[in-house]
Simulated assay, not measured.
Amino acid sequence: MKNPIGALNKIFDSRIRLGVMSVLIVNDSVSFNDLKQLLELTDGNLASHLNTLEQAEFIKMHKAFIGRKTNTTYTLTDLGRQTFKAHLDALEKMIKGI
Rank of each mutant, 00 (worst) to 15 (best):
I59S: 05
L46E: 00
N45W: 11
A56K: 13
I11N: 06
N45E: 14
N3E: 10
Q37M: 05
G97M: 08
T77C: 04
T42D: 10
L8P: 01
H49Q: 04
R81N: 05
L76N: 02
H49W: 06
K60I: 12
H87K: 09
N27I: 05
H87N: 13
I5G: 05
A86V: 13
L38E: 11
I59N: 01
A64G: 05
L91G: 01
D28P: 03
T73A: 05
N27D: 09
G80W: 00
L8A: 02
L41D: 01
D13N: 08
G19M: 05
F32Y: 11
A90N: 05
L46P: 06
M94D: 01
G19H: 03
I98Q: 13
T72C: 00
E57K: 10
L91I: 14
F32L: 01
A7Y: 13
Y74N: 02
L18F: 12
N71A: 08
H49Y: 03
T42Q: 10
L18P: 02
S29F: 09
D43H: 15
Q82R: 11
M61T: 14
D43S: 12
I25E: 11
L46T: 01
I59K: 03
A90R: 03
F12I: 02
N27Q: 10
S22P: 11
I16Y: 01
Q82F: 08
L88Q: 14
D43C: 03
Q55A: 10
K2D: 14
A86K: 15
G67D: 04
L18S: 04
I95R: 10
K96A: 15
S48Q: 09
R68N: 09
K60H: 09
T52L: 13
D28V: 04
G97L: 03
G97Q: 00
A90Y: 01
N27A: 06
K93P: 04
D34H: 11
S31L: 02
I95W: 14
Q82S: 12
N33Y: 13
